[in-house]
Computed example of a mutant assay.
Amino acid sequence: MKLAIIDTACANLASLSFALKRLGFESVISDDIKELEKADKLFLPGVGTAYKAMLNLEQKKLVEFIKNTKKPLLGICLGMQILGEFSQELNQKTLGIMPFETVKFSQKEGFSLPHMGWNDISSSHPLFKGLNGAFFYFVHSYCVKQSDHKIASCEYSEDFVAALAKNNFYGVQFHPERSGEAGELLLKNFTEL
């Protein structure tokens, strides 16, 4: 199986590659559409702002490729958020693959931002096979509060979407590559979908 990590130039791509290697999978990190088209599965990681991620994807001429791919694609953290239509973060239009908006967490007493740390999630979706109630590592100040495509939920000061799925597109708000055994099992589940 050929796995490709889309080079968004705004993520720790190596840690995802190492996590896949620990599972016995080789992956390429690339922004070359010809190379990405050879892959069986795609990963869209992201860290930072939606503005910077979208700017990088536009400059690399990857927006239309991502929007039109029929290959299974897993968006991670910011990579999940930009699958939606809009991010409040710098008022950024995003990929529009799924109908949702990314918004800032409500500021509530006793909860600091960013939301950083381990939280359990609940899901019965095949992406989370063997993982209902497992803990994953989160780092984010913005979230998706509601979506018809939600497949997993979490709570930090308020309910938010931990994972989404629509057709061949999947997204997780947490970092599976930093979530130990649970994260590795989720990555393995994705390769088996």
Rank of each mutant, 00 (worst) to 15 (best):
V103K: 15
F18K: 15
N12T: 06
A14C: 06
E26T: 08
F25R: 08
T8A: 01
Q173F: 08
A152I: 10
L55S: 15
L74T: 10
H149Y: 15
F18V: 11
F169G: 13
P72T: 12
N189P: 13
Q81S: 07
Q88H: 12
L127E: 11
K61T: 14
E192F: 02
L78P: 12
L187A: 10
N12D: 12
E35Y: 02
P114I: 14
A162T: 03
A162S: 11
M98I: 06
E184V: 00
E89W: 02
E37R: 13
P126A: 08
H140K: 03
N68T: 13
Y170V: 11
V139P: 13
I29P: 07
D159N: 15
K60P: 01
K52Q: 09
S157G: 15
C77K: 12
L187E: 06
C143A: 10
E158V: 05
D31P: 04
I33E: 13
H175M: 08
E155Q: 12
A9V: 09
P99R: 00
K41L: 06
S112H: 10
N168Q: 15
S27I: 08
L57C: 07
E101C: 07
S123K: 09
P114H: 12
Q146M: 07
N168R: 13
F111S: 02
G46T: 05
C10I: 12
P72V: 11
I76P: 04
S112Q: 10
P126R: 05
K61S: 14
K67Y: 04
Q146F: 09
L131A: 14
K60D: 10
A134R: 11
V139N: 05
L187Y: 12
A152R: 06
M80A: 02
C10G: 03
I97N: 13
E155Y: 14
L193K: 08
S17F: 00
F136H: 10
R22W: 00
F138L: 10
L74W: 14
E64N: 15
K188V: 04
G46A: 08
L127N: 04
E101D: 15
L42G: 03
E26L: 14
E181V: 14
L44N: 09
K145D: 00
P114F: 06
N91V: 00
K61M: 11
A182D: 13
T94H: 05
G110D: 10
F25I: 03
H140P: 03
L42V: 00
Y142G: 05
E158H: 00
L95Y: 13
E89Q: 11
L83Q: 06
Q88R: 09
K2C: 02
Y137C: 14
S141T: 11
G117M: 05
I82L: 05
L193A: 03
V172C: 04
A163F: 09
G130Y: 02
N12I: 05
G46I: 13
D120M: 10
E26G: 14
L74Q: 05
I82A: 01
I33H: 09
Y170S: 10
S179G: 06
E177Q: 08
I76M: 04
I29H: 07
E85L: 01
S15M: 05
G96A: 09
K70C: 02
E37P: 01
W118K: 05
I33W: 09
L23S: 09
S15D: 07
N91P: 05
F169A: 02
S15K: 13
A165E: 15
N132H: 02
K67E: 04
M1F: 03
